[in-house]
Write a protein that binds this DNA or RNA. Structure first.
Length: 667
DNA sequence: CAATATCTCCTTTTT
DNA sequence: GGAGATATTG
């Protein structure tokens, strides 16, 4: 498809910094792809000097496959396409020595970070937990630490010494003793590294002659700093963003980074994309009217030359079961009679928990569906166990992994033994692994305990010797085999069938690691530790069925829907307290604005047809409670809405309208 | 030390 | 109304 004037302008601006303000559906992905293609074909950039950064793996994969289609496998695989986090991980793995870390450091997930902080507070600051409640203390420490890391302040440099700063210090040294980093470290340590080492700043600044950032409004402080450093040598980059779609401020995103650019780069070229190619004029009008209730950083007016389209449907249901049943019945109507494919449809909602009633209604109606970001293969305890074994093999200092698997399979190592071990470890500031090997430890434990522990040490060192020597996919089989994991799972499963299921999950995950280590699929061979932390970053999830693949309805949160589009969209749960979510209202009106943007993102996912629904009652904590419709419904243009009675089956007439619109969209 | 019963927190979004 | 952590038994 041809580019319009503004899109072409954005593609052609290559000599300096370029900011593209891209409204929803204005073809920003097309611009990014066209620009990368043009950089390579028309301007002689080498593919490996181009770096494109996205926020989700989903977006990165999408970009990869589109570039593969345009440029071919050979060229496309050379381009650096990654999320900020995985780029940070690459930098840290390459430069680990400067940080005084081994190459095989571990990535701690939020869950582990939470547990670490909980243990620190329990052990060293019990009065803190008593005063604020344990959860409150953890939350407060977590927020403070995130703030310091975001501002690149190391524990010794924290100015007013308070409780949180002491926790920060303990936390930091604990992570170091485990040779572990957290998600935020992937970026903040990379940034600090380039800040403190001029040669590295030069090296990485030269590596990328052109940098592109998608969803720029979602960058936080450190990500912006990293971008500045990566582009410091050539000063050539394009960032694409839309402040109306900023929905991650809760994790530190600063849409103001859009404004900072103009100050930091006086030569900044700004391009606005205001023509929407995605949605009917009615859908766009709804979206525009809703978002006009928010203040704006940049004035922009989205317009569309597409047909007016059908009115937006508005459905009031009795409760969430009725709502789910309505959506299911409506989808059946549209697919049986309306000729819509299941994959043309998405159901969007605020929280993951809202998927449950939909799932049961869809199962009942035999509607094929996928829940994205729903329960992942990595959430199964058996998979977590085996992954912790992998982490431990790569990095034995990884205390959190060690504590999880020290008694898996059963080795008769119990709570008392672990308690004694941890005491020794904290006393010497060592990891538990080091403590196990320390001769001084023996005096603190009984002979029986020592015997059980030495069994564990032998197993671990055998596995390390065995696995780290291998560079092929068989290593994963040998892990399961050596642990006698099959027997362990069978012993802990109620039925043979569930044991089989669990083993299947485990071997799937191990196959993912095996593929990377062996360098299958034309990808580069990857060290064991990297392969494992890619799983923790969820980088290697099996590719989603795209279009042709699974013909299924997609269920997802509004956050997960960003960047996607569907002919028919259901946006459910438009109740006061749900969307806008009650818990976000604390930070005054800021919260409401972000919730409104969330609704805006949902509405603008729809191409031809949109259905909004809400419930008048819902079961909350077991109690049925009445609910008010969302304020956002009152902010939509009345004339573009059409109330639907969920109890009455509808006529084909309304489907024909949809058909026409779809046909015009396909032109 | 392991298996079962009871309690407590939380249900916002994700790399 | 559910998961996960802790207390209580065998």
């Amino acid at each position: 498809m041809r580019l319009n004037a503004a899109q072409q302008e954005a593609v052609d601006c290559i000599d300096g910094p370029c900011l593209v303000l891209a409204g929803a559906g204005s073809g920003k992905t097309r611009v990014i792809i066209a620009k990368i293609t043009s950089l390579i074909r028309d301007h002689g950039f080498l593919p490996r000097t181009i770096c494109a950064i996205t926020f989700t793996n989903k977006a990165a994969n999408e970009m990869k496959s589109r570039l593969r289609a345009d440029l071919g496998e050979e060229v496309a695989k050379e381009i650096w396409i990654s999320t900020f986090h995985s780029l940070g991980q690459s930098i840290l793995r390459a430069e680990h020595a400067r940080l005084g870390m081994g190459r095989d450091f571990t990535l701690y997930t939020d869950h582990e970070v939470h547990n670490v902080l909980r243990d620190i507070i329990r052990e060293h600051f019990p009065q803190y937990a008593e005063k604020e409640g344990e959860q409150g203390a953890i939350q407060s420490a977590l927020a403070a630490i995130a703030r310091w890391k975001g501002a690149l302040v190391a524990p010794p440099d924290v100015a007013p010494r308070d409780l949180n700063s002491m926790i920060y210090e303990r936390y930091d040294s604990y992570l170091k003793s485990c040779q572990a980093v957290d998600f935020e470290d992937l970026i903040s340590l990379s940034t600090a590294l380039l800040r403190d080492h001029e040669d590295l700043a030069q090296k990485w600044g030269r590596a990328f002659e052109y940098v592109l950032v998608d969803e720029y409004q979602d960058t936080n402080e450190t990500q912006y700093q990293l971008l500045r450093q990566l582009t410091s040598v050539h000063q050539r980059f394009t960032v694409v963003g839309d402040d109306d779609q900023s929905i991650y401020s809760w994790r530190g995103a600063r849409p103001e980074n859009i404004n900072s650019l103009a100050g930091d780069y006086p030569g900044l070229h700004v391009v606005k994309l205001e023509q929407n190619y995605r949605s009917t004029r009615r859908i766009l009008n709804c979206a525009n009217t809703l978002i006009s209730h928010n203040p704006h950083l940049f004035e922009k007016r989205l317009f569309s030359e597409l047909p007016e389209g059908e009115r937006i449907e508005l459905v009031a249901c009795d409760d969430e079961q009725a709502e789910a049943a309505f959506v299911a019945a409506d989808i059946q109507r549209l697919t049986f009679e309306g000729g819509l494919r299941h994959s043309d449809i998405a159901v969007l909602y605020r929280g993951n928990y809202q998927a449950t009633p939909l799932e049961s209604a869809f199962k009942m109606a035999q509607i094929p569906y996928v829940v994205s970001n729903g329960d992942s293969i990595f959430d199964h305890p058996e998979v977590k166990d085996i992954l912790c074994w992998c982490r431990l093999i790569a990095n034995p200092k990884d205390d959190q992994a060690l504590l999880r698997v020290i008694n898996i399979p059963n080795r008769r190592i119990g709570a008392d033994t672990i308690k004694a071990l941890r005491l020794c470890a904290t006393l010497n500031g060592n990891s538990i692994y080091e403590t196990l090997l320390d001769p001084r430890t023996e005096s603190s434990l009984s002979p029986a305990q020592m015997k059980a522990l030495s069994g564990f040490i032998v197993t671990l060192s055998t596995l390390r010797g065995f696995l780290l020597a291998r560079k092929d996919a068989t290593l994963v089989d040998s892990l399961v085999h050596h642990l006698d994991y099959e027997r362990y799972i069978k012993a802990n499963s109620s039925t043979a069938k569930s044991a089989e299921f669990k083993l299947r999950l485990v071997s799937d995950v191990m196959a993912m690691i095996g593929r990377q280590v062996a360098g299958k699929r034309g990808e580069a061979k990857v060290p064991f530790a990297t392969a494992v932390s890619r799983l923790l970053l969820r980088e290697t999830l099996e590719r989603r069925e795209d279009g042709t693949g699974g013909n299924v309805v997609q269920l997802m949160t509004l956050h997960a829907s960003k960047g996607l589009e569907f002919p028919r969209v259901y946006l459910i749960g438009l109740e006061d307290g749900v969307l806008p979510n009650r818990n976000t209202m604390e930070d005054a009106y800021q919260g409401l604005e972000e919730e409104r943007r969330l609704a805006y993102v949902g509405i603008t996912r729809a191409r031809a047809s949109l259905c909004l629904s809400y419930c008048t009652t819902k079961k909350i904590r077991g109690q049925v409670q009445p609910l008010m419709p969302s304020v956002f419904l009152t902010e939509l243009p009345e004339g573009d809405l059409q109330r639907i009675n969920p109890r009455r089956t509808r006529q084909l007439a309304s489907i024909r309208g949809l058909d026409d619109v779809l046909a015009m969209l396909r032109e």
